[in-house]
Structure formats: C-alpha cells, structure tokens
C-alpha cells in the first residue's frame, strides 16, 4: 500500500525501511488499542451491572410506553390526514386562499390546533381516569368537535383503542401481580359497556369513545406519566400527519424521518404541552379557524385517499 508514490507528502521522502518500521509501529499500537478497548468495555459492563441490576420484574410503564407509541398500534391512524388532504386540495391553483401549500407550514398549525382543541381532554382523563370523569369528558368532546369529518376520525380511533384495551391489553395484564388496579380496570370495562350499549338518544349518545380522553385514561392506568402521555399523543398526531404526507406523495420516507427526528417537532410538542398544561376542557377551543373550514370541507373533495 505504501510506496514511493505515496501521496502523503510527509512520507514521500522516507525510505523503504522507514515505511516498514512505521507499519510495524502502527500495528503494535493498533493491537494495544484493541486490547485496551476490550478491557475497558468489560469493565464498563461490570460497572453497569453493579449499578443496575437486571429487572426482577418488567417495568410495565416502560413496556406500555413502547406499545402505545408504536406506529403499528392498530388505531387505523393511517386512514386520517387531519385536514392535510383538504388543505392541499384548497391550495390548488384555482385556490381561494393560498396558492402555496407546504407541509412545513401546515405541520405547526395542525399541531397547535390539535393541542388547543384536544390535548386538554387527554390531560384531564389522565389526571382522573375514573368512569364518571371519562364519560363526562367523552360527552364534552363529542359536543365540542363541530365537524362531521373530525368526529368520525376521533371516534374511529377511540373505538379502535378501546378494542385494543379490551381484547389485548387488559387480558394480558395479570390480575394479581400487575400494578393496574382492579378499580381502574372496572372503570374501563364499564365505559366499554356504556359504549357498546349505545344508550342515550341518537342526538346525544351516552358514550361515543373519542380518542383523546380514552388515550389519557389508558396511559394513566398503565402507569405512564402525564408528560409522557401528552408527548406520545401529540407525537402520534405528527407521525400520522407525516405518514399522510408520504402517502400523498409530498416527500419520501427519509425526509419523513428527518422531520420526525428534528428539533422543530420536539420543541413544538414540548411548547404545546406547556401551553395546554393548565387549560380546562371547558376552555379548550379552535385557534386556527381555517382549519375547521379545511377539515369540514374534506367532504366536498372530488377524490379522497383519506377519511379525514
């Protein structure tokens, strides 16, 4: 590899034997460094195992954190674009308001609007996941989603989550050893019954199973912190938006991951959680009025790939 024509100027004046010596020296140093690495990594393992014992029992909240933030959680989120598709259609050249649509402009607006209308319901349900509060929040949210398309999306995903709880999560939690209390399970069970029974009038059903309050309650029951719950909830919204943008052909999967990993999304979510931390559900509301128009007018799109 090293010859007289070696491009590195330092070596170009050196003789054959110097080069041989240098190789030998480098090889020796490499071997030494490898040995050192071996030792130090062993000692690190030893150190960490001293500090941190393997868990005698799985950390349930950590496990559910992963489950609930997984894109594979079958909520059907991929079917909804949260107004993105309609926003793009309205940004067409025949466009009323905006000739230039961009995902970079839509994302912060959408997250802000979603946080302002919906996050308080998640937070309240997490703080008090009892049956009475859950039912009340569900009813209040049903009254405050003032568009057919949004209501459809919220109920479809909420019912899917309730189904996952009933069929998958709840049966897999050991009734004796898991930290999930029997009372909490009973509350969710009664809520599911309320939804199934379909009581109340057609106008005002007893329970609809909207996503936000159920998400808050279930996260609370499996031990996720309020902050974690809020973060997963808003990040889930961002993931759904980004995936919708990929499906709508706005950009590819690498760009999608770049957006998801970026500082902007992290800071945005953190700021939105801070903004809505104390907001009572009665004070929640729409802060981007045109979002309601785009959302509501998803119904009048000629062709649609999403349900919202």
């Amino acid at each position: 590899m090293t010859t007289g024509k070696d491009p590195i100027p330092l070596q170009s004046h050196e003789g054959e034997s110097d080069v041989e010596n240098e190789i030998a020296e480098l090889e020796r140093r490499l071997a030494a460094a490898k040995a050192k690495r071996c030792c130090s990594s062993r000692s690190r393992v030893e150190l960490s195992s001293l500090l941190e014992q393997p868990l005698s029992r799985p950390d349930l909240s950590h496990h559910f954190h992963l489950l609930l933030s997984d894109s594979a959680l079958p909520l059907g989120s991929f079917a909804f674009s949260s107004g993105l598709e309609s926003y793009l259609a309205h940004g067409h050249k025949s466009n009323p308001y905006h000739p230039h649509t961009s995902f970079a402009a839509f994302l912060p607006l959408s997250v802000s609007s979603y946080a302002s209308t919906t996050l308080p319901f998640v937070l309240s349900a997490h703080r008090n996941p009892t049956l009475s509060n859950l039912a009340e929040l569900d009813d209040a949210q049903d009254a405050s989603i003032i568009c057919t398309v949004g209501r459809r999306a919220s109920i479809a995903q909420g019912r899917a989550l309730l189904g996952i709880w009933e069929r998958s999560f709840s049966p897999s939690l050991s009734p004796t050893s898991s930290p999930v209390s029997a009372a909490a399970r009973d509350d969710l069970k009664s809520f599911a019954l309320l939804v199934k029974k379909g009581g109340g009038s057609k106008e005002t059903p007893d329970a609809s199973a909207h996503l936000a309050p159920l998400f808050g309650a279930i996260c609370s029951v499996v031990g996720l912190s309020l902050q974690q719950t809020a973060y997963i909830f808003l990040f889930g919204h961002v993931k759904a938006l980004v995936s919708a943008a990929v499906r709508a052909g706005m950009f590819g999967p690498y760009q999608a991951q770049k957006i998801l990993a970026g500082d902007t999304v992290q800071e945005l979510i953190t700021e939105m959680i801070k903004r809505e931390w104390e907001t009572r559900v009665e004070k929640a509301g729409q802060n981007v009025p045109v979002m309601d128009l785009w959302f509501g007018r998803h119904e009048v799109l000629y062709s649609r790939i999403f349900n919202s």
Partner: peptide
C-alpha cells in the same frame, strides 16, 4: 346536557417561533 360547545381562540401570542403569526394563520 351540553349539546354543542363552539369555541374560537385567536391569540397573538405565538408559543413557538415555528408557529405562524395570528395574521398568517
């Protein structure tokens, strides 16, 4: 029984620089 709660909140205070100003939004 609450039937409808319609609320619009227009606030000039942007909580994040990435957010559009109220006018732009």
């Amino acid at each position: 029984r609450l039937l409808v709660r319609d609320a619009v909140i227009l606030d000039s205070n942007r909580s994040h620089p990435e957010l559009a100003t109220l006018r732009d939004s």
